[in-house]
Amino acid sequence: MIPAPFDYAAPATLDEAISLLEQHGDEAKILAGGHSLIPMMKLRFASPEFLIDINNIPGLSYIREEDGYLKIGALTRESDLEHSDIVRNKFPIFTDATKLIADPQVRNMGTVGGNIAHGDAANDHPAVMLALRAEVVATGPGGQRSIPIDEFFYGFYMTALQPSEILTEIRIPIPSASTGNAYHKLERKVGDYATAGVAVQLTLDGSGTCQEIGIGLTNVNPTPLRATRSEDVLRGQKITDELIAQAAKFASEDCSPSSDLRGDEAYKRSMVGVLVKRMIHKALERAR
């Protein structure tokens, strides 16, 4: 298993990388962690003519709190996220998710930005970012722009990134206290892509009413999916088992899973319902 020949550059600055993208257009691919791209190239399902390796560009790997956001540099490795104290304390959802992404070696290479920019509904971060209402920062020839996560995924492996843009940062609004979040996916074995995955973040007010909620679904739709109707059921309400059941039912109805080796549509819908219920409970526990 060997990739087809290609040319390669490892620019030292973002500007250089962007101008290479402009120069090579569709023939170029960005190489970040490479753990989605290189296997595709080895199997010769993908044969880009030019790889732009962004790993040598400084300043793209960080996790910091700033301006009311948790900012994650696009080149931040999954393992950095896994072992970050900020994350562990305020965003246990990432600890839930990273543990289930591939395996430790892959997480040492794989990047958070890559996991999102790939536009694959089977990846885990998209659903998490939907739940957290993140913004994606893209940098292109005209400078930076921030894209709300809800406008980022718009087709099968398609994102709002323009051909000469690079995803450079993910911004997650830091929620108020009394917020809980959680993620879980069912997998056939450890490291597998999700049979179904559900991310939930919810914020309670002093009286225990759900002020805000985000629910994202993994691998049960052509694109990463927000369970809007389920959120609407709970927002502004005191959360009861009946409401949770209703939210779970809506999520399982609103997704659009395809039948494959992991299971048929009915099974996956059912799993979405179970996971929505369980993740709401887990997020509630963490919020209290």
């Binding site: 390796d53 070696q105 892959v106």
Partner: peptide, 13 residues
């Protein structure tokens, strides 16, 4: 110092 899978990393990296 980090464990990685050398079949999925380019030598040039």
């Amino acid at each position: 110092g980090k464990s990685i899978k050398s079949c999925t990393v380019l030598a040039i990296q």
